[in-house]
């Protein structure tokens, strides 16, 4: 059982949330959406502007 941060999780790879270590603002948003401990998540899209980080 490996643990990743969300940005390390590849697309379409299912995972289970273990903990939320983040900024208060984001944490509140994630809680609102119901993303808590033991919720299954699958990333489906990455913003294209993230790719420009590499430039």
């Amino acid at each position: 059982m490996k643990s990743f941060t969300l940005n390390q999780l590849p697309i379409n790879q299912e995972a289970v949330i273990f903990s939320l270590n983040c900024h208060d603002e984001i944490r509140r948003r994630l809680l609102d959406l119901g993303l808590v401990y033991q919720t299954k998540i699958t990333p489906i899209l990455i913003s294209p502007s993230r790719w420009f980080n590499c430039l």
Binding site: L20, L31, G34, V36, Y37, Q38, T39
Partner: peptide, 13 residues
């Protein structure tokens, strides 16, 4: 605490 509360609600949901 908040996380636990939301967890419970999501469990019911």
């Amino acid at each position: 605490l908040k996380e636990k509360i939301v967890s419970s609600i999501m469990f019911y949901a």
